[in-house]
Structure formats: C-alpha cells, structure tokens
Design a binder for these strands. Structure first.
Lengths: 407, 407
DNA sequence: CTGCTTGGTTCACGGCATTAACCTGGAGTG
DNA sequence: CACTCCAGGTTAATGCCGTGAACCAAGCAG
C-alpha cells in the first residue's frame, strides 16, 4: 500500500500547487474565486498567493468591478517569470520551441534528421544546439529557463538516466537524459511523445475540463495516451497505451511488430497505403512520401480507394470502441496526422461505427472529438513537463521529478 | 484540476490510514517497523497507534525478542473490534458471508435465485435476510458490524442510491443501495463483482505486493478488473474494464451483446461451448448446465474438442496480450471459473500465446498467474468495501464513502 | 458624508509531525 | 549481583500550517 507519510509541509505544498494550477490553467482569477473553487479559506489563499507574488511567480493583472463593492483584483501567472523549452524528436526532424509561462511560443528551431536510425549523439547535439539557439533567439536569460522537456517516440524509463527504447529510431537503451544533462545545466525532462501531446490537448486543447480521456493517435504508427482522473496513465513501466499493437483481427495482416492482426496494420497510414496497394492490383497510391500519398488516397475518387477508406473507418471505429469499453473515458480525442486527416472527413462515420461496436452505456457517456492543437502540440506538451514537475512535486506520491533529471 | 484543499486534519487521517493499512495487510508489525516503512517518525507512530489502541481498533499481539535489546511489541488489528459482511449476487444464488477483521469467515448463508431475471425486491430480501442471519449465526453484536458490502455483476452508479445496471440480471436502473438502506441501519456499500474479486486478490491473493495488475475474469461472460497504482481503475462512470466486449476478430462471431467478434464470443464459456457445437456438427458437449458441460469439454479426448480448446487458448492469449499492451501491468491474474479451469490445464500455452501477441518489452515486465482465492473471493472482496472506506476516507480526494451509503 | 456591499488582510488559536532528550526491559560481562 | 550495552518506545518543546473572526479597503447610492 501507500507507504508514504504526510507532513505539515506537504500540506502547504499541496495547497500551493492546487492554487498555482488553477491560476495557470483557468486564466486570471480573483482570490475570492480561488477560495471558492479550492475550498481553501480566504486567509490561506491570500497567504499563499502573497508568497507567490513575492517570488514573482504570480502577478496582479488588472481588476474587475464587482457590482457595488470593491473591485476584485485578478491574478495570473507572470508570463515572464520563467520560460519553458520543449522539443519533439520526430522521425524526420528535431524541433525545439521556447515558450513563456502563458505558453506563447517565442522562438523555434528545427533540424532535419537524415538517417532512418539516427545516431543518439547527433540527436543530442541537435537538442542542445536547439536549446541554446531558441534561448538566444528569444533574448531570454538562460537562468530564467525553468526546464527543458523532450518528447521521443519510444518508451522512457523513469530513472535518473531516462533511458529510451524507441523502435522507430532504432534506439534500444539510449540514456538520453544522462547525455543531455552532460551538456546543459537546465533541468531536463524526457517523456513519450504521445503522452506529451496528450498532456497538451488535455490542458489547452480538446480535453479541457475533462478528467478521463483517451487521446488516440494515428500516424504512420498508432498509439494512445490514457488520462485517468487528470493524470496520465503509465502502467508499471510507462509503456501503457500501446493501442496500435492490440489484436483486432485475430490471425489477420502481419504488422511491422511481427504479430498478426494488429490495429496498426489496418489503420496506421503505412497499413492503409499497403492495403490500398493490394486492393489496387499492386499499384500504390500517388505521391512521394507517406503523408502526401495518404492525402492523395483521401482525395482519390476511385471505387477501390473508397472501399479501402471505408474499411479503415470500420477498423478505426472498432479500435476506438475497444478504448471506450476498456477505459470508459469521458472523451476520446482523435489525433495524429493520419487520424486528423481521416477524422476531418469521416468523423460522423467514425462515431457511428464506434457506437455500433461499443457497449451502449459507456458509449453514451463519451464524446469523440478531434485534436485541436496543431503539429507543434508535441513540443508544447514537452515544454509543460517542467511545469508539471512544479505542480507534482508538491502534490504527493513521487519524490520529485518523475525519475528524470533535476539538475 | 484537483480543486481539493488539504487541511491539517487530512494529514493526520492520511497518516493514520497508512498505518492502519500496513498493520491490517502486512500482519503483526512493531512500531519500529511501521516507522521505517512509512517514513513517519517514531513519535508519530506511537501517537497514532496509541490512539487506535485506545479505540480498541488495534491491539498488541505478543512480543519478539530482538537480539540484545528490548523486545519489540507486535501490533495487529483487533480481529474482534468489528465485523464485515460481504455478499455476492450471482446469477444463480445470493451468498452472504460474515468475517472478522482478520478476514476469517465466521458465518455463511446462501439463497438460490430461481428466475433468470430475478426481481430486485426478492434479491433485496435475500440480502437483508442473509445479513441478519449471518450476524445471528456468528453470535455477533449487530452494532459491531462495520458495514455490508454487496457485489453485483453489472455497473454501479457512484451515487447515494447506488443505482445498478446489470444486463445479465435484467436490471436497468435498480436503486439497490436505497432499497437496502431502507431495510438496515448498517452502512451499505455496493460495487461490481469483478472489482471486489480483484480487490480480494490484490490484498489477499495472487496480487499481493503488486501495484499494477489486471485481473482477467472468464466465466460464462468475460470481464476484467484493472488495478492502477494500488487502486481500482474505474473510468468516468465506473464501467471501465469491459474486456469481454472488445473486438478481437473484426467481423467475427456474433456476441450476445449484439456486436460481432467480441472476445467474449470466443473465450467465454458460452461462446466456447457454442463453437464446439458448431465444430461438432451441431452436437453439444455433454453435461447439463454450462459449468459441467465446460468441464466435460476440457476432459474430452476428441480431436474436435482439442481443436476448439486450442483455438480458445489462442484467442485468450491474444486478449491477454491486448491487456498487457494497453495497461502495462506488473501482473495479470487469470480467474473466473472458466478461466481457472482453462488456466489450470493450459497456463504455459496461454503464456506462450500471450508472449507471441504482446510487445516484447511489456510482456517481459509482466507475469501471468492464476487467481488464488476460492469461489468465495467475490463475497470476501465485497466485505472489504467498508474497510476500504475506513482507509480511503482518510486518504484524500473523495468526500467519504465512494458515493454509496454512509448510514 | 453616511451607509452598504463586496474584496482582501491580519492575528490569535488549535492541530500536526518532528526532534531530542529520556525511560524501559532484556542480554551479556566481570 | 552490579554494570554496561543496546534496541524499543515515550515524552516535552518547537515550528509550521490552515482557520475563523475581527478588521481594513474600495467603490457605489443616496
């Protein structure tokens, strides 16, 4: 069981965290509103807010007249108190972005990755270079950077070294955390890209205000980010949510993971294009890279294309229904470049197929939406990792910093 | 986000709960051991333990000499401090059982259910009758009964009325909590049977010492209980874990839920027997009721039976692999009467098939075991519901009593 | 200027876990 | 048998925390 004591300091930290989170996510709020929504006494709110104002973390942001009484002073997180840097290590490029605490992007850097299986050393260099580049570009004091969050596509061990296993990059046991820490003094945080995207959507996108959600990501591969009661579900070793490799057609098509009948082999972009090629007597869809080919397929008017897409919607709906049945979320958010492309055109059909495959009750309790943040959402979510630490460190359970660098 | 304040009382309750849980689950412990494993100071341990001893909740249980020093006094939960009653509303009978706090069963009562879709009124009568019967049978003071936990097979709304939706019983919107509370002053707790069984296995069975587990239940139907970080995963409306109705053969056999290709249609006892009948040119397996017929099938030596069972193991392994991929548990516990029957004979094969279908890493991090508690586990888990309240009420988050009767 | 209303602050109070000093009971030793 | 050692457990002083009640601040109506 939970062998974790609670001390009087934890309490203050917990309350501070609750307030800070509310202020950060729900915009300018008065002390009064804070007191009401957190059930803290006004005295405590004043006390804690005063402390945060003294630190410069929170600032007053104008006032709003309240009918007949003293106007209420609004509070917000001081955008310039600190800065967050987030990076997205994709298959084709490393993207680094700097945000202020209002999550406004102030600078951006991008580095193409040439090789299919890039050298970790090279990626580390890109990341560190990007970090200094965006800091310089934005003209920000390096000491004011609260942390550097990095999103990668594999699973990340929650240890000090943040060892990464990423099949798509050909990495197996790369201590990315240790490597990055050797090159910078800024606190480094590393997590899976699907999880950072999920975090971003939960806080600033299609998941706002929801506590239980599943973010379903369909790109070349297929994955999911499960959010349970407001926090990401990780499982025993942070590799939960491998939706793409669940069996949906027992004994079906071979997946690149080696197994038969994985969902990814049917709805992942690679699988869809492959299925089209087979249905089209060996002739592939037009377009050079996967993304344009997929777009072509979506626009194609042939009967074969329509059939393949129709089937894809069927498989996807069944896969989403599995998520609904297993996780009973309030919302399913469909994303990933292929997922968005499909969703923009077929969302009603996807909803319908899901309704047919899911149990009545859980389906009735959920809504299916599309991701609302653009392609930078992964980096944005990565940038929130250091902020999440600010909150979590105060909350409970883990002894600070989700097992990753603390500088 | 978590709009929940923490006050100085919560802290004490949280720590008290941590200690009580440790003492209850990990048997007699000295104050010293408690201090070490909870990181609380010895002073606080003494203080809190003293309080609980004064209440009669905890008692000293002999002492153990420690080499050269003062012998340590062991502490345990006083078995006679209170009693717990648990009930299991099955498809064929209502079972009620009374336990002391050492979870020793002191009395038992059972009532057959005649109809396929029993009248809620009748079930309520059985439950209340059983409650007084076991109390009398055990010769226990009714005032010492801490609570009455009831397990049903459907989903339970977490409201004061504990409205039950149970397809198998033909119940849709039965306010079982309200009905029971009208007939007794003892605090009533109602939850899903799979979840109570899971709780029992986690605390006293195959899940001991594990924080992330999935209890996979295969009977006539198929379900699962997901335990994440020590607590049951419920989802937005407590209906998470509907493993049986996830699609595993897209477009496959029709399931009794109306959908095609559900796992339940392939590995649920009803589905297995049905598949055997089809493979056996329409002749069903011998045996009267489902359970004996399934046993016959397992013992049958025909090629057809072997083939059907072999396929069943295949589907089951793929289903378990889906759980492993999605939830990344430390342990999968296979149970339910059909699951146990299959597991006792085919566990190595099931493990092998799962290994083939799951991703390498999550599979390597999990172990697949069988349930260890007998058929009374559901009732036993139900009996722990009032105890869980004792713990949780002190822990955080919910304002007491998981939305169900508090008397 | 008075009264009213709403927003925010100050301060004494009781509750909490902690630390450090202090008992308690048994085993070994001369 | 006294003395010492040692681990288990208790007690009192301390510092921190959120709360409630009294209090101050700021705008409006008359």
């Amino acid at each position: 069981m939970d062998a974790r004591r609670t001390t009087v300091r934890d309490m203050r930290r917990a309350n501070r965290s609750v307030l800070l989170t509310r202020i950060w996510l729900d915009g300018p709020l008065s002390r009064h509103e804070l007191g009401q929504s957190t059930a803290l006494s006004l005295a405590s709110v004043s006390n804690l807010v005063g402390e945060m104002i003294a630190e410069g973390l929170v600032e007053e942001a104008g006032s709003v007249e309240s009918d007949g009484g003293r106007p209420r002073v609004l509070l917000r997180v001081a955008p310039g108190y600190g800065f967050l840097v987030g990076a997205d290590v994709g298959e084709t490029r490393v993207q680094v972005e700097l945000f202020d605490l209002a999550m406004t992007a102030l600078a951006k850097a991008e580095y193409p990755i040439a090789a299919a299986e890039p050298d970790p050393r090279q990626v580390t260099d890109h990341l560190l270079h990007g970090l200094t580049a965006v800091i310089e570009q934005a003209g920000v004091d390096p000491a004011a950077v609260l942390g550097f969050g990095v999103a990668v596509s594999g699973t990340v061990e929650r240890t000090a070294d943040a060892v990464v296993h990423a099949q798509t990059l050909g990495w197996d046991g790369v201590p990315l955390g240790a490597m990055l820490r050797a090159g910078t003094d800024i606190p480094v945080h590393i997590d899976n890209g699907a999880k950072t995207l999920g975090q971003a959507e939960m806080w600033f996108g299609a998941g706002r205000g929801v506590r239980h959600a599943v973010i379903a990501l369909v790109g070349s591969g297929v994955g999911a980010c499960v959010v349970a009661d407001g926090v990401g579900y990780r499982g025993a070793h942070s590799s939960a949510g491998e939706w793409g490799h669940t069996t949906i057609v027992y004994g079906g098509r071979r997946c690149r993971c080696g197994n038969l009948g994985c969902l990814e082999a049917y709805v992942g972009a690679e699988g869809v294009l492959d299925r089209f090629r087979q249905a089209n007597r060996g002739r592939p869809a037009a377009g050079g890279d996967e993304e344009t080919a997929f777009g072509e397929l979506l626009r194609a008017s042939s009967r074969t294309a329509a059939k393949v897409l129709d089937e894809t919607v069927g498989y996807l709906g069944a896969g989403v229904a599995n998520l609904v049945n297993l996780f009973n979320p309030e919302r399913v958010v469909l994303g990933g470049w292929a997922g968005l492309a499909l969703g923009e055109r077929y969302l009603p059909q996807i909803r319908e197929v899901t309704a047919r495959h899911a149990l009545r009750q859980p389906y009735a309790q959920t809504s299916i939406e599309l991701c609302r943040l653009g392609p930078d959402a992964v980096a944005m979510g990565a940038a929130t990792l250091p902020m999440a630490r600010h909150f979590r460190r105060t909350l409970a359970r883990d002894p600070g910093g989700q097992g990753i660098a603390e500088a």
